[in-house]
Simulated assay, not measured.
Amino acid sequence: MDGTSALLEHASCVLFDFDGPLADLFAGHPASRIADRLRRRAGRLGVPPAELPETGDPLRILRIAARHDSTGRIAAELEEQLTREEVHAARTAPPVPYADRLVERLVADGRQVAVTTNNSARAALVYLQRRGLAGYFGSHVHGRAADPALLKPHPDCLERAVASAGTSPADCLMIGDAPSDFAAAARLGVPFVGYARNERKAEELRQAGAEHVVRSLEDLTPTTALA
């Protein structure tokens, strides 16, 4: 058994990042366009335009806006707009190859599964219901908190998932596709496997410190544990 299979064999609960390991959330609703809309609205709400960079990452806009918002009103309005955009994207987002099958087989083997994501929990639930997977996750869908400071790499959503599963960090496994996923897992002491859809993503994960990286979720269905 290789190291990756051993991690999965040991885990009683598998924590999935949402966009990347489970779904290609923004395939038909590009994140860059959402970021543009959030940037324009943040400017109208009073965030200095010079502080709002050209970026394809909506969460970066949310974080920056929160730093210029002592009342929390701006961040709350932008977060709600982002949630609506993500819910819209979730209605058509395609699955990552082998993701559905991996979830089904993990649960069939007696493991718990949870979502730990910087995306909205509402969007994740819309997607899971559409794919017929919501029952496998139950109440274990943990999205971003109201405070942008608690987004990964902060381990907040992982902490909530571990607590709801009634297990320990060491008995879980995080499957993520970004350095922030690895950092959050490392801070909490959760073993980590990186999923990389291309070599660029794989190199980013390795440079962040991820020891175990797979290019296909098919590699995370070991016959010994999940046959």
Rank of each mutant, 00 (worst) to 15 (best):
A186V: 06
D17V: 02
T224Q: 10
T221S: 08
T116N: 04
Y98H: 15
S216K: 08
P49N: 02
S180Y: 09
G209E: 05
L52N: 07
S139N: 15
E159T: 12
A121H: 08
Q207V: 15
R44Q: 14
E80P: 05
T4E: 10
A186H: 15
V113C: 01
K201D: 14
G135V: 07
L106P: 09
G110T: 08
F18N: 01
P222M: 01
H29R: 10
V103P: 02
A93T: 06
E104M: 11
D147W: 05
A185D: 03
R101N: 02
L128C: 05
G56W: 06
A23E: 00
E199G: 04
K201N: 15
K201S: 15
L82S: 02
T71K: 11
F16Q: 04
A227Q: 13
Y136Q: 09
A89C: 10
E79Q: 14
L133H: 09
R130N: 12
A121N: 08
L128F: 13
D219G: 02
R67K: 12
R144W: 07
R91Q: 14
G209Q: 07
I61R: 09
D177L: 07
D171H: 11
V14L: 13
P153A: 03
E86F: 02
V162I: 05
G176D: 03
L158A: 10
V115F: 05
K201G: 10
V96I: 11
R63A: 11
E85V: 03
R40L: 13
P53C: 04
L102P: 00
L82Q: 00
R73K: 12
L8S: 12
A210L: 06
L133C: 12
R130Q: 11
P153N: 02
D147T: 00
G166E: 02
D100R: 15
G176V: 03
G56Y: 12
D109S: 15
A208R: 11
N119R: 06
L106Y: 09
R101W: 05
G28A: 12
D57W: 11
R91M: 05
P49Y: 08
R122K: 15
H212E: 11
S180K: 13
V87E: 03
C172I: 01
T83H: 04
E85K: 09
T116Y: 07
L226Q: 01
